[in-house]
Design a protein around this nucleic acid. Structure first.
Length: 844
RNA sequence: GCCCUCGUGGUGAAAUUGGUAGACACAAAGGACUUAAAAUCCUUGCCGCUUGCGGAGUGCCAGUUCGAGUCUGGCCGAGGGCACCA
């Protein structure tokens, strides 16, 4: 028997698919479509195991749907703008474009070796002007719809590198490269008005039945809707201020009012801009305000003003007004009504500044004398000490009643607030999509006419300058629009903008007039199944959903509100970690095991300790290079193993033993294939013909069910079982015709997982008509059932019998079974529970 | 602090509507074949006593039920998300 030569077989089929353009698809409304999309990669230069897992899962689905007769769109592209290219270019004095293009070429070669069923004719790359030209047009479209605007906003500023840092580049309040203390700096930036669609984005989640609940909840929390009331507080004091507006979810606790707190950026702060004490307070706030930890453990501090606020429901009561570090300017009105007894944060603040803590809600199981002492009571109960509000049920009745009173007295009104903030899209970087805007001397912004798009990135420029390299491109910046001399915007767009609409572009990848053709997206959209990492649960997925809202806003020609009908988030690929005695991380290929227990460095110099399995990362050196795996074991082995051990939504642990055993299993399947092919022809039908037919039916049903529910790990288990069944039964007397016919169905069902191997075997067995094999429900009916016999709920025996057996007959049978009868020993049967063909429980 | 998810052998995991717990693998141990090794195949979850049988067993404690990994309540533990959101 020959050995399976994966190298020649995999190359053969990859060449065949490429030459025949097997996965090329076209818009064709006469066919039912399926759009299968995996999140496109950043072209870092090499694929990693996470890609292998992501794209294998998607490929299984795409191939399955394709065999089922769907017109399957399964494209691939590159999220090719972004910082790594700029950083690599800076370090090695390269051109980011060339660096990116080389990486794309490498990764494309690697992906092709995985045997993915991708329509490569639709390949796109977001850093190509053919792509970002349309993105600039979308920007202008949103600009016209007033969904884009400019405002001043704080950024993380590195004063040494003179550059803006992303949050993840700020480590312990310092710049990741320069180590300089990061400052809060105000810059004028472009924003997408995503918050305009807060309610729509929230409502849309309800309809996404094929999204993981977890992701929907995360988005819901992120959008953060809350219901309450806007209250207008009268202010007394020596400043020309009459009112301050607050938002509160608990207007019903107004009688517990004891201070009013303002954000340091509140408009009232302008009266204090020359106040030294206030300025130093502000300084202190911005010091603690940068890192998340500081916020978490941060003390609540305040700056007392000379102002007082009047309680609208109790005009006799006046309380002090503070600036406080915990009040955010961009939520509500940047002002908080403080009720210490029923809000922990207000409670902490009141304790620190010795403010009154007046209890106005008692828990249902406490009486009128209940007093808040050591911590705030935010729970339900009954209003007390609240004059005309006393006795109301909190919170359900009391909030609405209080709002009605406030509305009647014109002191406030009901209000809904969202936490979702507008999306800042400006990046002070070179390697991104230029923003199609220019300014006159006064700083007024003008859109660049669509006829002048794309605004191309200048090439061959010096990146080793401080700040944004585009700032110093004087020639590039100058532009003449309708006779006006303008200067271009030098900020580029956040790369999340690129990924917010790429799935539309895949539908019309070569369209030149606009980002897509209507007839293409009408046919292909929405994406039927989107597959990717859960780390994009909020930003990327929410931005994409927003983009659909924005495009359809004031536009009768576009009605896609949800881009992704189904979403699947796969788990990560993990590997054991290794350290030597000096606590240095050691890579798996520097290690060998002895008896599977001790680990040594290969040069035998050091003993290695084995750490927990963690997601593969370069810093922990526990990565495995897919290229080596494919070279050593083949793509099918890699696909088989990455699917086999864990359900796709959970983390999977990569191991050398695992990939080796997958490799061996394919060799076994190869031997089985040869046995089938070499089987001599027997022309008389035997009992075993029926057996293999029934088995195949059962098998196909399992595979079908498991494919539908993304239980790909179980399909691999089914495959192992199928092997051991066929391998044992093949010695028996089948007619060859029956054997081969059923075996070919099994092979077709194998092609999504092992495309090269299964197609090779199908070709050897001269299979025709490769359609997804349907199982026959009528053959599935069992002819023998196992009925469990329980005595007092414990399993005591098993009866094999024909289906539809009745209780009496079953009892006749077990009367002959000594093992079961010994439990009866002179006891009376009190009760019997019989579940047909499944279980008989006898209570003695 | 708030929200979500999950706890099953040495390990990754299976177990349609409550109905044979541990399918399928990995590891380890033992065995078969072999002059030997490799490869291959077989056996083995735990605790008892001799094959066989019995007992306990799905994080812990209760409850519902003839019957609970699965349902309910409480507790413990792990992972993930959010971070002063008024």
């Amino acid at each position: 028997m020959s050995r399976y030569n994966f190298k020649s077989v995999e190359t053969k089929w990859q060449n065949y698919w490429e030459k025949n353009k097997s996965f090329k698809v076209q818009t064709d409304p006469s066919k039912k479509k399926f759009y299968c999309l995996e999140m496109f990669p950043y072209p870092s230069g090499k694929i990693h195991m996470g890609h292998v897992r992501n794209y294998t899962i998607g490929d299984v689905l795409a191939r399955y749907k394709s065999l089922q007769g769907y017109n399957v769109l399964h494209p691939m592209g590159w999220d090719s703008f972004g910082m790594p290219a700029e950083n690599a270019a800076k370090q090695n004095n390269l051109d980011p474009k060339k660096w990116t293009q080389t990486n794309i070429l490498n990764m494309k070669t690697q992906l092709k070796k995985l045997g993915l069923s991708i329509d490569w004719d639709r390949e796109i790359s977001t850093c190509n002007k053919d792509y970002y030209k349309h993105q600039q047009a979308f920007f202008l479209e949103l600009f016209e719809k007033k969904l884009v605007y400019r405002k001043e906003n704080y950024v993380n500023w590195d004063p040494v590198d003179e550059t803006v840092l992303a949050n993840e580049q700020v480590i312990d309040g310092k710049g990741w490269r320069s180590g300089a203390a990061v400052e809060r700096k105000k810059l004028s930036q472009w924003f997408f008005n995503i918050s305009k669609f807060s309610q729509e984005l929230l409502d849309g989640l309800e309809k996404l039945n094929d999204w993981p609940n977890k992701v929907k909840i995360m988005q819901k929390n992120w959008i953060g809707k809350s219901f309450g009331s806007e209250i207008n507080f009268k202010i007394v004091g020596d400043l020309p201020i009459e009112n301050i507006k607050c938002f509160t979810t608990r207007p019903d606790t107004l009688f517990g009012f004891s201070f009013l707190a303002l954000s340091i950026d509140h408009e009232i702060s302008k009266f204090y801009r020359n106040n030294k004490d206030f300025l130093s307070f502000k300084d202190e706030c911005s010091k603690t305000g940068t890192t998340e930890e500081a916020i978490a453990v941060g003390e609540k501090i305040g700056f007392k003003t000379n102002l007082e606020a009047v309680n609208p429901l109790n005009p006799k009561q006046k309380v002090p007004v503070y600036f406080a570090n915990f009040v955010l300017m961009d939520y509500g009105f940047g002002a908080v009504f403080g009720c210490p007894a029923h809000d922990q944060r207000d409670f902490d603040f009141a304790k620190k500044y010795n403010l009154e803590i007046k209890t106005v809600v008692r828990p249902n199981d406490k009486d009128e004398n209940f007093k808040v002492l050591n911590e705030a009571y935010p729970g339900p109960g009954v209003l007390i000490n609240s004059d005309f509000l006393n006795g109301l049920k909190a919170p359900e009745n009391s909030i609405l009643e209080t709002i009605e009173i406030l509305e009647k007295k014109k002191l406030g009104k009901r209000q809904i607030n969202f936490r979702l903030k507008d999306w800042g899209v400006s990046r002070q970087r070179y390697w991104g999509c230029p923003i199609p805007i220019a300014y006159d001397e006064k700083g007024k912004a003008y859109p660049i006419p669509k006829s002048m798009l794309p605004v191309e990135l200048p090439e061959n420029i010096d990146l080793n300058v401080k700040g944004n390299p585009l700032d110093s491109q004087d020639d590039w910046r100058k532009i003449n629009v309708d006779g006006k001399k303008l200067l271009r915007e030098t900020d580029t767009l956040d790369t999340f903008v690129c990924s917010s609409w790429y799935y539309l572009r895949f539908c019309s990848p070569t369209e030149t007039e606009y980002g897509f053709k209507k007839k293409d997206i009408d046919y292909w959209m929405p994406v039927d199944q989107y597959i990717g990492g859960v780390e994009h649960a909020i930003l990327h997925l929410l931005y994409s959903r927003f983009f659909m809202q924005a495009l359809s806003h004031d536009n009768n020609n576009f009605d896609i509100l949800e881009p992704f009908n189904g979403l699947f988030t796969q788990g990560m690929v993990c590997h054991e970690t290794y350290k030597d005695s000096d606590e240095n991380w050691i890579s798996p290929d520097e290690i060998e095991s002895i008896n599977g227990k001790k680990y040594l460095k290969k040069d035998k110099s050091k003993l290695i300790s084995v750490g927990p399995s963690e997601s593969m990362s370069k810093s922990k050196k526990n990565t495995i290079d897919p290229e080596n795996i494919i070279a050593d074991y083949g793509a099918d082995s890699a696909r088989l193993f990455i699917l086999s051990d864990s359900p796709p939504e959970k983390d999977v642990q990569w191991s050398e033993e695992g990939i080796v055993s997958s490799f061996k299993f394919i060799q076994k399947l190869w031997k089985l294939n040869q046995k089938v092919v070499n089987e001599i022809n027997k022309d008389h039908k035997t009992d075993f013909d029926d057996e293999i037919l029934k088995y195949t039916n059962k098998y196909l049903k399992k595979v079908h069910d498991n494919l539908e529910s993304f239980s790909y790990n179980k399909i691999i288990a089914n495959l192992y079982e199928m092997y051991s069944f066929l391998n044992k039964q093949i010695e028996k007397n089948y007619t060859k015709h029956t054997l081969v016919e059923n075996y070919q169905k099994i092979l077709i069902a194998m092609t999504p997982i092992l495309p090269h191997f299964a197609n090779e075997c199908l070709s050897i067995t001269k299979a025709k008509n490769l359609k997804w094999p349907k199982y026959d429900v009528s053959i599935l009916k069992k002819e023998i059932v196992n009925v469990v016999i329980q005595i007092n709920g414990k399993k005591r025996g098993l009866v094999q019998t024909k289906p539809d057996i009745d209780e009496e007959k079953l009892i006749e049978i077990i009367k002959n079974d000594e093992k079961i009868m010994k439990y009866f020993a002179q006891k009376e049967i009190k009760r019997k529970i019989y579940i047909k063909d499944k279980l008989l429980n006898i209570i003695l």
